[in-house]
């Protein structure tokens, strides 16, 4: 096989993995930016999205329905959880927040086990997405190209949302100074709830997009949350552009590690994180606190 073609395919593989990771890492960093806390349940929401997607597709026969149902379920869960539990904790120390979100992760995992059972679930992609295309005369799955497109679209829409909408402005303002944001007449609690719901919707959509590739299984959440944490650390907690860079770095490190040095692949992500944090303790685009 032509080494250049091989390299190109690995680049595309890496981009598609980066795209999936971006969906979960972006929500994590937005939540950290505005709430200064880490949402341990974010991986479980990603997993819930995968299961909801599979269920919606099984019920309706439509893959598009799964991409609609998952983010709706994620947003509803995020909104309910933020309003009923998290909003009472902002005044408390961070450990309370960590414990409660960790508790939600466990509860979600058990709820999924009760509803859908312990076995992994997968569905068929529609024919048009299940096919292959030839890239430099080598076969490549269409679906992975779709993931790259979805990740790019998500990046673009979220960037526009942050820069051009009132919610985006208030999110950025509240990330920098929540007290002044409120003193200028904005209900910061409402902004937090909306951001949390949006972040959960993104994670769940990521899960639904991942389901055809990885299948919906009970370990999905804890696997993906670790990568997402690493991305957010590398990029700089709370930084949008850092999350883009971190997703790409981790996606490429894992894909190329797996391909060229499989025996070291597991350590690649952590080696990357340690290198970045030694050189820049706040992450690539982190703001000094």
């Amino acid at each position: 096989m032509d080494p250049l073609a091989l390299f190109t395919l690995q680049v595309l593989n890496a981009l598609s993995l980066s795209a999936l990771l971006f969906f979960i890492a972006l929500g994590l960093t937005l939540i950290f930016g505005i709430m200064r806390v880490v949402n341990f349940a974010h991986g479980a929401v990603f997993m819930l999205g995968a299961y909801c997607g599979v269920a919606a597709q099984t019920a309706t026969g439509s893959f598009a329905a799964s991409l609609l149902a998952a983010p709706l379920a994620g947003a509803a869960l995020g909104l309910a959880f933020e309003r009923s539990a998290l909003s009472r904790l902002y005044a408390r120390e961070h450990s309370a927040f960590l414990l409660v979100t960790f508790g939600l992760a466990l509860a979600l995992t058990e709820a999924i086990r009760l509803i859908w059972g312990a076995d992994a679930r997968q569905t068929e992609l529609p024919a048009v997405l299940a096919g292959i295309v030839f890239v430099m005369d080598e076969p490549f799955p269409v679906y992975r190209l779709l993931l790259i497109g979805a990740g790019g679209l998500c990046w673009l829409l979220c960037w526009l949302g942050l820069q051009r909408t009132r919610l985006g402005l208030l999110l950025r303002a509240a990330s920098q100074n929540p007290t002044m944001t409120a003193a200028l007449g904005n209900d910061v609690g409402r902004v937090r709830a909306m951001v949390f719901a949006l972040a959960c919707a993104l994670a769940a959509l990521g899960g639904a997009l991942a389901a055809p590739l990885l299948s919906a299984s009970l370990g999905l959440g804890s696997n993906v949350i670790i990568d997402a944490f690493v991305i957010v650390m590398i990029g700089g907690m709370g930084s949008f552009i850092g999350t883009v860079a971190g997703s790409l770095l981790v996606g490429f490190a894992q894909t190329f590690g797996n391909f060229y040095v499989p025996e070291l692949a597991l350590g690649m992500t952590y080696a990357l994180m340690i290198t970045v944090l030694v050189l820049r303790p706040g992450g690539l685009f982190g703001r000094p606190e």
Binding site: L169, R172, Q176, N177, M180, A182, A183, L184, G185, D187
Partner: peptide, 28 residues
């Protein structure tokens, strides 16, 4: 009333130390 409602009722606040948003532009 919570802080944001007091602001909406007509209180403008220029705090000690200015507390502008450092990463937002003047217009933002």
């Amino acid at each position: 009333l919570p802080t944001h409602a007091r602001a909406r009722a007509g209180l403008g606040y220029v705090p000690e130390g200015r507390q502008i948003f450092p990463e937002l532009t003047v217009m933002e």
